[in-house]
Design a protein around this nucleic acid. Structure first.
Length: 803
RNA sequence: GCCGAAGUGGUGGAAUUGGCAGACGCGCCGGACUCAAAAUCCGGUGGUAGCGAUACCGUAUGGGUUCGAGUCCCAUCUUCGGCACCA
């Protein structure tokens, strides 16, 4: 027999699968459907690295297994191709981003094909294809129509040297990444999407889906629901109110000052009453240089300015209290103003200590001279008039009722989640299909005019005024108003990269439809996605954005299920051999092409699945790859010890059933590493018996097929089995045959293992005791002592406690 | 800082979810084959003591709960992901 030679085998089978359309999914099938999804890649210029195939292989394993189990499986692939790196590369090299994208996609495609994934390539999509983004624009129009898109002044990072708006990522240590120029916040009028309108549903409907816990928790915390009160504080002598949001209305008697955000509108409104306007203006400029992240950092030094000339009145104590301006209060959360209760809030406490503001204890239980007392479960109210003596929870209710009755405030639910800034001043994104008309305002482009395609431009750099490069193409910008026919101008901002990826999974169901984003039947048949795997880093943005869009489409009747993804799992990163993140600058990037060249795609696939816990990050190891190749060599050589036999041999029968069970279950629960370990053990058994019969071999090949599809197909053919392996049936196991008649049980004395006994599985304590007492070592530890207690857990442990 | 995870031999990891810690792989050591090497095959491999049976120690650190803790609780340290214009 020839040696195992993956390079010839793998190409051969990839071509056969392609020619036969083996993995094409049908929209019209009697079989039960299974839709498995991986996050479609961003085709970067660097090509695939070994991190990409990890999740792809994992769901390929699941998809292939499902096909063997008789499902109609959709496992699609596409390109999330709008984005910053391509645009920056285009700017630098003066190449059209479309050309760059085409080149990158071709490279990625070739690489993915060489890995033998069972993608349905007939459904390949690309977010930059006008036939695709037509529908991205269409969804935006629907959002606009339903009032979920609106314009708002939002600060952007502005490089004062390049005169360009920058992504957060492009701002490094407060300066521009490219030119080290100063970066300031510049306010722009931008399109926003009201994701906050869906905040409640985005939390609540997590109950409908099967996501790993940490994804659910992180999404919940990101949406950040908190129940509290909005309370009005009168501005002394003005008769007007300053409204705050608080989750601790119970501590109202302890509010000794107020803090407003530097951007709060009341500063402008009362400018003539404020004596230190210069200080406040300067403070605002300084605050503008910081990100929200820097501003709200808990352990940073607190800064602030007291407003000289205005006071507020605590509605319950009637006392006049000062109003401060500080950057730790954000305009984007709550009302942009807070009541400060230094005794019971850590940040307020630090602020009060620094500026010598009064700290009044209103909840007993801690020492507010030393630190803020924030525990709400044990405290009892004090210094709070009619709340005194109540527990915090009761006080909350009482004061909330009281405030509502007196019309001084109202119960309110707040979310940390902020609306989605949807505008980018960039070229390489979907044009926003709106026209501005002096008379009619913002008017949507009629649906039949979609897609609004990207015009050709000479430079891809944003314009010097901060507009997108599209603004310079006057004959594109200038148009007629679809409503009144008068002069109109197109929106020149483009959509963020997130737009195209917020609905791509719908397009896969019917990728060539020109009448709708997908047909009703296709959506109905395939949705929801049965299994979606992706990185944890997408939990709070992509995953939430796409759920939001899907829910919107559900509300307007486009899709028929409220949640897009039934199940969500997550993979860990693959690090370099030095245990650091793979990157060019660290010089630790491993290119999958080289691994395939030297060891074969099947080896790479087995290794990526065997490397470790799928959900954790792991360092790459070239030696580990070699070990997996050795395993496949041993698989190949099984042909040397093959014997006839249509049933499992006596000595291996129980093992075969156990392995089928283990592999079947482990593939489902992402424990590919232990599934492969079980297959390795089985092959070790074959080898120590120096034989394997046909029935055993057949089962083994099917079990291994999802991970190593090429070698198993080849061996299947060489062994003369009917048809192709991908048409075979997944093996079944007999539960009874996975259970041994006799088991070895550890016997402990005082919790330490002192011996082992062999007993029938269903043996009781008496039998165990009898066997245990026959063991010299156990006897030694019991002799001369009293048996206080015996714990016998059938099938697990026998523990004798002595004194 | 805030939110979410993780920490087990020389090394990647396993451990039926509270029941024999170290499956499987890598590396290393020894042996077979070979003139030799590679490949392959066989055996060994957490530490300490002992010829051995075996004993003691051992799952980031310090406490705790339990007959029994890698697993549960409290505190601490370290590493990783996210923090809203990277994807």
């Amino acid at each position: 027999m020839e040696n195992y030679n993956p390079s010839s085998i793998e190409k051969k089978w990839q071509d056969i699968w392609d020619e036969k359309g083996t993995f094409y999914a049908s929209n019209d099938s009697d079989k039960e459907k299974f839709y498995s999804l991986i996050e479609f890649p961003y085709p970067s210029g660097k090509g695939l690295h070994v991190g990409h195939p990890r999740p792809y292989t994992a769901l390929d394993v699941v998809s292939r297994k499902r096909r063997l189990e008789g499902y109609n499986v959709l496992y699609p692939i596409g390109w999330d191709a709008f984005g910053l790196p391509t645009e920056n590369y285009a700017i630098k090299n003066q190449i059209h981003p479309r050309i760059v994208t085409e080149k990158n996609v071709a490279k990625f495609k070739e690489q993915l094909k060489s890995l033998g994934f069972s993608f349905d390539w007939s459904r390949e999509i690309n977010t930059t294809d006008p036939e695709y983004y037509k529908w991205t624009q269409w969804i935006f129009l629907k959002l606009f129509e339903k009032g979920l898109a609106y314009k708002k002044e939002v600060p952007i990072n502005w490089c004062t040297d390049c005169k360009v708006g920058l992504a957060n990522e492009e701002v490094v240590n407060g300066v521009c990444e490219r030119c080290n120029g100063e970066v300031v916040q510049k306010v722009k009028n931008q399109w926003m999407l009201k994701i906050t309108e869906y905040a409640e549903k985005l939390i609540k409907d997590l109950d409908l889906v099967d996501y790993i816990d940490r994804v659910k928790i992180q999404q919940k915390n990101w949406v950040g629901r908190s129940e509290g009160m909005e309370v009005d504080f009168e501005i002394a002598g003005k008769g007007e109110k300053l409204r705050v949001f608080t989750t601790r209305p119970d501590t109202l008697f302890g509010a000794t000052y107020m803090v407003i955000s530097p951007e709060h509108p009341m500063i402008k409104e009362y400018a003539s009453d404020i004596n230190n306007m210069d200080d406040i203006e300067n403070y605002k400029i300084e605050a503008g240089k910081k990100s929200d992240f820097e501003r709200t950092e808990l352990n940073k030094d607190k800064t602030g300015v007291e407003i000289d000339g205005l006071k507020a009145v605590n509605p319950v104590t009637g006392k006049e209290i000062p109003i401060w301006v500080s950057d730790y209060v954000l305009m984007s959360y709550g009302t942009g103003a807070i009541m400060s209760v230094p005794a019971h809030d850590t940040r307020d406490w630090e602020f009060a200590k620094k500026f010598n503001l009064p700290i009044v204890e209103v909840v007993k239980g801690g020492d507010v001279d030393k630190e803020a007392f924030v525990d709400i479960s044990t405290g009892v109210m004090t210094n709070s008039d009619f709340l005194d003596g109540l527990k915090v929870e009761d006080a909350k209710k009482k004061i909330s009722d009281w405030l509502e009755e007196k019309k001084l405030g109202e119960r309110k639910i707040n979310y940390k989640l902020r609306d989605w800034v949807f505008s980018r001043q960039r070229y390489w994104g979907e044009p926003i299909p709106l026209v501005y008309c002096e008379k009619c305002g913002w008017v949507p482009v009629p649906e039949e005019e979609l897609p609004i395609t990207l015009p050709e431009v000479e430079k891809y750099e944003p314009s010097e005024t901060g507009e997108s490069p599209l603004a310079n193409i006057r004959d594109w910008v200038e148009t007629t108003c679809p409503k009144c026919g008068g002069h109109g101008e197109r929106e020149t901002d483009t959509m963020p990269q997130w737009a195209g990826s917020s609905w791509y999974f719908l397009r896969y169901t019917d990728p060539n439809n020109s009448e709708a984003l997908a047909s009703e039947e296709a959506l109905k048949y395939w949705l929801p996605i049965d299994w979606y795997n992706g990185g944890m880093e997408h939990t709070t943005l992509h995953l939430l954005y796409s759920r939001f869009w899907h829910k919107f489409l559900y509300d307007i009747g486009v899709v028929n299920v409220p949640e897009p993804y039934q199940k969500r799992t997550s993979h860990g990163m693959i690090l370099g051999e030095n245990n650091e993140k793979m990157s060019k600058s660290r010089g630790n990037v491993v290119n999958p092409d080289e691994i395939i060249e030297e060891f074969g795609a099947d080896t790479l696939r087995v290794y990526e699945m065997f490397i470790g816990d799928f959900e954790k990050s792991v360092p790459w190891s070239n030696n580990g790859v070699k070990g997996c190749r050795r395993f496949l060599d041993r698989v190949w050589r099984l042909q040397d010890i093959l014997e006839d036999g249509d049933n499992y041999s006596k000595e291996l029968e129980s093992n075969m059933h156990k392995t089928i069970k283990k592999v079947t279950e482990d593939y489902e629960s992402l424990k590919f590493n232990t599934a492969i370990a079980a297959l390795m053990s089985l092959i070790n058994d074959f080898n120590s018996n120096k034989k394997v019969n046909k029935a055993e071999m057949k089962t083994f090949l099917i079990l291994l097929n999802p991970v190593a599809p090429h070698i198993t197909e080849e061996m299947w053919t060489l062994l003369g089995y009917q048809g192709m392996l991908n048409e075979a049936n997944w093996p079944e196991f007999d539960e009874d045959k996975t259970v041994d008649d006799e088991i070895e049980m550890a016997v402990q004395v005082n919790g330490k293992v002192r011996g082992k006994i062999i007993i029938p599985v269903d043996a009781d304590k008496n039998i165990a005791n009898e066997k245990a007492m026959a063991d010299d070592n156990i006897k030694k530890f019991i002799e001369g002592k009293n048996i206080v207690k015996e714990i016998f857990i059938p099938g697990k442990i026998y523990n004798i406690v002595v004194k």
